[in-house]
Design a protein around this nucleic acid. Structure first.
Length: 640
DNA sequence: GATTAGGGTTTG
C-alpha cells in the first residue's frame, strides 16, 4: 500500500496499518475527546478505536470546522474514517487527519438504525460501509464493554467522574475562569447538592421554573477552556457533560455543626475526554431523557430550604470573594445553632461524654453529643422489622411470595354460600377462568345497614391472590383476607396479613394474638375509619408494629458506643410501615443517612448529633451486658 | 502554510 489517494470504499484492518500510508479505517470507539478548540487554528478531537483484530489506534483529528470532526456521543459508537494518515509517535502507530479527511459515525447498539448519526459532508455512504458497521456492532456487543460512566444524578456518588446527560435550565458567567450551568435530568441526587451564588451575576434562564424544580436542579461549574463552550450553549438544549467530577464538600462553621454538599465540577483541560457536547433532538438518549423529564411529578418534590437563589439574599456570598465562597453556605445562621438531630423531650438533661457513660451501671438516661461513625445495616431496607409491642419479639417482614403462598393455599377451598350476605356484609362471588375454577368471594362490609362509598368500604375477600388484593386495596378502604369456617368467616393463618390498607400489609403477633370471630367487626363503632389497631382489637389480634432497627456507632472523641435505634417513624420522620413500598421514602432515608454519616470524608467533617440514649441490662447466657437505645430524638427538619 | 495534540482527571 502506498501513500496518496486511496481506493474508495476499502477499509484496512487495524492490524495491517503501515507507517506513512493514508487509509480508510472503521472501528468501535474506546475513548474520545469531544471536539474542542486547539491552541492552533483548528478544532481538535482525539479518538481511540478498536476493531475485530483487537488492535487499538489512537487518532488525532483536526479540522477548521467543528462539524467536520466526528461527533461521537459515547464510548461504543462506531466510526468510519477516510483519509487518515498513519504515522509513528512515541514508537506507536497513530492516525492523523490527512487532506480530504472525512468521517461517519453510528450508534453502536445492535439493532439501532443503520442511519449514520453524524458525518462529514463529503462522506458518501455505501453498502460496504453498512456491512462494516453491522459486523462491528455484532463484534462489539461481546468484545467491547459499554460505557460505565454514563449515569443519572440519582446515582451520583461522591469522588467520581461521570458522564451526565441533562437539560440546560440556566447559566451564568461566574468569573473569567468559571461558568455556572444549572441542569436537571429528572432525578434527585442522594446528597444535598451545592448552590452557587448567582447574586450579582448576569443569569440567563427561567429562575421561576428552576425554583419550582427545587432540588431536581443541580449546579455545575465548568472551568477554563470549557467557559467558552458554556457561553455558547442555549437554554433548553440537551447536553452530555463528560468526565464531570463529583465531590463531597464538608461545610464547616465555627460552631459544632458541619454538613456536606455534593459539588459538580468540570475541570479545565481535556484529559479523560472532559468536555461538553450538545445532543441533537434525534438522539435516542435525549428521547429517553425527555420522557423522564415529562414524567416528573412536581407535587412529590420535597420542599427544600437549601436553595440560594436571588430571592434568598441573606445566605449569598459575593462572587468576588474567593474559593469556597462560591458555595453559598447552607442556612448558615441556623446551622450554627442546630445539630443534624434534635431532642423531642428531656431538654433539662446535661450532656454526658461517652467515656463517662461507658463506666456507669444501667439503667440510666443520658443526653449525648456525638458523631455517627458508622451504622448497620448498610442496606437500609434491611433495617425494617416487625415488632410486637406486647412480647417485644422482633421478626422479619414476610416476603410477598410467602404471603401469596398462604393466600393460594387458602384459595383451594371454595367459599361457603351459607356464609354470604349476612347483616354485616353483602357478598359477590366470581369464578376465575382457566385456573381450575378458583372462586373469589368479596364481602362488602355495611355501615349502619348500607354499603358505603368504595373508598370508605372495608371488604373481606376469599380465594384472592396477592396481586388481586393489591388492586382491590387501592380502590377500597381496606381489605381483610378470610376463609369460610364451619360457622363463620375466619381469618387466615396469622402469618398472613390481617388487614391490607393501601400498599401496607398489617400483621399480628403469633404468640400474643387470640383470634376472634369476624362478626365482631360489627362492634366497631366508627365503620368509616377502619383503623388497623381497632380492627385488630375486635379480632383478637395484637398488631405488629413496623420499626426501623439499626445499630448506630457513636463517637464523641472521648469514647465509642453502640446504640440501637428502634423506631417506627419519629426519628427519621418516615413511617417504617411505608418505606418498603415507597421509592421516594427510600430515597429520603438514604439522603438522611448520607447527611448524618457522609461517606468518603473524614469524621471531623461529619455533623454532630444530639441524642437521648438509655442504658439497660441484658443477660446473654451467663454474661451480663449493658445495651443502649436511642429515644425521644429526631433528625433535624433542615435535613429531611 | 505550519500548527494544533499526541487519551490517562483539578486542586476551582
Amino acid at each position: 500500500m502506498s501513500s496518496g489517494p486511496v481506493a474508495p470504499y476499502t477499509y484496512t484492518p487495524l492490524n495491517l496499518l503501515k507507517n506513512g500510508t493514508v487509509v480508510n479505517v472503521c472501528g468501535v470507539v474506546k475513548f474520545f475527546k469531544p471536539p474542542y478548540l486547539s491552541k492552533g487554528t483548528d478544532y481538535c478531537s482525539v479518538v481511540t478505536i478498536v476493531d475485530q483484530t483487537n488492535v487499538k489506534l489512537t487518532c488525532t483529528l483536526f479540522s477548521r470546522n467543528y462539524e467536520d470532526l466526528p461527533v461521537i456521543y459515547k464510548v461504543g459508537d462506531i466510526v468510519c474514517f477516510r483519509g487518515l494518515k498513519i504515522q509513528v509517535y512515541k514508537n506507536e502507530l497513530q492516525g492523523i487527519s490527512h487532506y480530504g479527511f472525512a468521517s461517519l459515525t453510528f450508534d453502536g447498539a445492535l439493532g439501532s438504525p443503520a442511519v449514520r448519526h453524524t458525518s462529514s459532508k463529503s462522506f458518501n455512504f455505501t453498502v460496504l460501509d453498512h456491512h462494516m458497521v453491522e459486523a462491528l456492532r455484532a463484534w462489539a456487543c461481546t468484545h467491547v464493554s459499554a460505557s460505565s460512566t454514563l449515569l443519572q444524578l440519582s446515582d451520583a456518588q461522591p469522588m467520581q467522574y461521570c458522564d451526565l446527560t441533562c437539560q440546560l435550565l440556566g447559566k451564568a458567567q461566574v468569573d473569567g475562569a468559571s461558568f455556572l450551568l444549572k441542569v436537571w435530568d429528572g432525578t434527585m441526587t442522594k446528597f444535598p447538592s451545592w448552590r452557587v451564588c448567582i447574586q450579582d451575576l448576569a443569569f440567563e434562564g427561567d429562575l421561576g421554573h428552576i425554583l419550582r424544580l427545587q432540588n431536581l436542579v443541580v449546579d455545575i461549574v465548568v472551568y477554563d477552556n470549557h467557559v467558552q463552550t458554556a457561553k455558547s450553549l442555549k437554554i433548553g438544549s440537551f447536553l452530555r457533560i463528560y468526565s464531570l467530577h463529583t465531590k463531597l464538600q464538608p461545610i464547616n462553621s465555627e460552631s459544632m455543626t458541619s454538613l456536606v454538599r455534593l459539588e459538580f465540577h468540570l475541570h479545565g483541560g481535556t484529559s479523560y475526554g472532559r468536555g461538553i457536547t450538545v445532543l441533537p433532538e434525534s438522539n435516542s438518549d435525549v428521547d429517553q431523557l425527555k420522557r423522564a423529564l415529562e414524567s416528573v411529578d412536581l407535587t412529590t418534590i420535597q420542599p427544600s430550604n437549601d436553595t440560594c437563589q436571588s430571592e434568598n439574599e441573606d445566605h449569598c456570598l459575593t462572587p468576588s470573594s474567593s474559593k469556597s465562597d462560591l458555595v453559598s453556605l447552607y442556612e448558615v445562621e441556623r446551622c450554627q445553632q442546630l445539630c443534624a438531630t434534635t431532642l423531642t423531650d428531656h431538654h433539662y438533661l446535661e450532656k454526658t461524654p461517652l467515656c463517662a457513660i461507658l463506666k456507669e451501671k444501667a439503667p440510666q438516661q443520658y443526653r449525648i453529643l456525638a458523631k455517627l461513625r458508622s451504622y448497620e445495616p448498610k442496606r437500609l431496607f434491611q433495617s425494617v422489622k416487625l415488632l410486637c409491642p406486647k412480647c417485644h419479639s422482633l421478626q422479619e417482614v414476610p416476603y410477598e411470595e410467602n404471603v401469596d403462598k398462604i393466600l393460594q393455599d387458602a384459595a383451594t377451598k371454595a367459599p361457603d354460600s351459607k356464609l354470604q350476605d349476612t347483616s354485616l356484609y353483602e357478598s359477590e362471588v366470581w369464578t376465575t377462568e382457566g385456573q381450575g375454577g378458583r372462586q373469589v368471594a368479596v364481602h362488602f362490609v355495611k355501615s349502619d345497614g348500607v354499603l358505603p362509598l368504595s373508598n370508605e368500604c372495608l371488604i373481606l375477600i376469599e380465594g384472592g391472590r396477592l396481586c388481586e388484593i393489591s388492586k382491590l386495596s387501592s380502590i377500597f378502604h381496606s381489605v381483610i383476607p378470610v376463609k369460610s369456617g364451619p360457622e363463620d368467616l375466619e381469618l387466615l393463618d396469622i402469618a398472613a396479613p390481617f388487614l391490607i390498607r393501601g400498599k401496607v400489609c398489617h400483621y399480628g403477633c403469633k404468640q400474643c394474638s387470640n383470634l376472634k370471630p369476624i362478626q365482631n367487626l360489627s362492634t366497631i363503632p366508627n365503620k368509616r375509619l377502619w383503623i388497623p389497631s381497632s380492627v385488630a382489637a375486635v379480632l383478637g389480634i395484637v398488631p405488629l408494629q413496623y420499626v426501623f432497627v439499626m445499630t448506630f456507632t457513636f463517637d464523641d472523641g472521648t469514647g465509642v458506643l453502640d446504640a440501637y435505634l428502634k423506631d417506627s417513624e419519629k426519628f427519621f420522620q418516615i413511617p417504617a410501615s411505608e418505606v418498603l413500598t415507597d421509592d421516594d421514602l427510600q430515597r429520603n432515608l438514604e439522603k438522611i443517612m448520607n447527611v448524618i454519616c457522609p461517606p468518603g470524608i473524614k469524621i471531623d467533617a461529619y455533623p454532630w448529633l444530639e441524642c437521648l440514649i438509655k442504658s439497660y441490662n441484658v443477660t446473654v447466657g451467663t454474661e451480663q451486658r449493658i445495651c443502649y437505645q436511642i429515644f425521644d430524638t429526631m433528625v433535624a427538619e433542615d435535613i429531611i
